[in-house]
């Protein structure tokens, strides 16, 4: 007696066997995709891109486009050279391109983003295994490299539009304004008068918020960056923990380090804090995956940013803080492994 009692023709049975896909469950997948996540980040950056063109003129647009095109180009070239599948369709190189350009001054020469994106994509990203394996944020690492190599190009902030008056960033005004008279100024007036002697004055807070100030192309408009950030949080692309703890800690640390209350809003809105906290510190590959790890990452970056801004040699500390926390990420992840359900000690 064998299974022929079941009335199926052998041919039919064999045919079905060849068609049916057999695999381990689950058999359905969500609509989430890497490409969709990257697209969301690009969408979130669009308001700030438009803002940068409005504030800094067509040169900003030119730099952004050069940066995007060269990032995508280098990704494709290096993957071809390594005989790996070309993955430019995942859109991640475009984000690196935008973020890198956002870190440049509007007056930067055209070749600066080209060299920057080559470094970001080839050395920081692909040498370490490509998407998801880079241990540092590629755009920030490239910015650090460019700043070290071409400090003048990277820190000359000249507005290209005639009505953009600022020629130094608010953070620089505060920093060098404060130290110009050899002692820490404790009031806005003192800082303003000190910086006026240096030929610059602090902009209004309203201009700080909308972004009508000196600075790198993409970092100036808190308003437009926050609109994009809200989109990313609603779409659950980024975790609120990192940016909230980052910005919160920076605020508290600056207070503890004795920064006058009047200056605090300038510290929050000026420099790359908003851009860094929402768009760079949340980079998946170079920040922890554990919820507590993300909080620690934010706190660590906040402490470092405040210390660099107040005690360091640079007026701005966001990028180095994030890079330092990037390299601490594996360690943070290790010590913040979540306690599993029902774990018995």
């Amino acid at each position: 007696m064998d299974s022929k009692v079941i009335k199926t023709s052998k041919a039919e049975e064999a045919a079905l066997e060849n068609i049916l896909l057999v695999s381990s469950s689950p058999h359905i997948r969500s609509n989430e995709s890497v490409q969709r996540i990257m697209l969301d980040v690009i969408i979130a950056l669009i308001p700030a891109i438009i803002g940068s063109v409005y504030f800094f003129g067509l040169n900003a647009l030119k730099l952004i486009l050069i940066s995007i095109v060269s990032s995508v180009f280098f990704e494709a070239i290096i993957q071809k050279a390594f005989k790996k599948p070309v993955t430019i369709k995942d859109l991640s190189a475009i984000i690196t391109g935008i973020l890198l350009a956002f870190n440049l001054p509007a007056s930067a020469p055209w070749w600066l983003p080209v060299i920057g994106s080559a470094f970001a994509i080839i050395i920081v990203k692909q040498f370490f295994g490509g998407l998801g394996s880079n241990f540092m944020n590629p755009a920030l690492a490239a910015r650090a490299m460019l700043l070290t190599s071409w400090p003048t190009h990277m820190s000359t902030f000249t507005g290209t539009r005639p009505d953009v008056v600022a020629t130094a960033t608010p953070l620089a005004i505060m920093k060098y304004g404060m130290t110009a008279d050899g002692a820490a100024s404790t009031t806005v007036e003192a800082a303003t008068s000190a910086s006026q002697s240096a030929g610059a004055e602090l902009p209004t807070l309203m201009n700080m918020f909308i972004g009508n100030i000196g600075g790198a192309i993409g970092e100036t408009s808190a308003l437009l960056l926050l609109i994009g950030a809200a989109y990313l949080i609603i779409r659950q692309v980024i975790d609120w923990r990192t940016p909230v703890f980052y910005i919160g800690t920076t605020f508290i640390m600056l207070m503890l380090l004795g920064v006058e209350a009047q200056f605090l809003p300038y510290h929050m809105l000026g420099g790359g804090l908003i851009l860094g906290a929402f768009y760079m510190a949340t980079d998946y590959a170079s920040s922890p995956v554990t919820p507590i790890g993300r909080i620690i990452f934010g706190i660590g970056a906040g402490i470092l940013t405040a210390i660099i801004r107040v005690n360091g040699g640079y007026p701005e500390g966001v990028s180095y803080s994030i890079l330092l926390m990037n390299v601490a990420t594996p360690l943070i992840e290790k010590i913040t492994s979540p306690k599993i359900f029902g774990e018995v000690k």
């Binding site: 068609i19 049916l20 695999s23 689950p26 359905i28």
Partner: peptide, 19 residues
């Protein structure tokens, strides 16, 4: 048919035959 599963799509077992 693409796949035949005993049970649901999340934890069910896919089959190679209907006999």
């Amino acid at each position: 048919p693409g796949k035949i599963i005993m049970g649901g799509p999340m934890m069910g077992l896919s089959q190679y035959t209907i006999d």
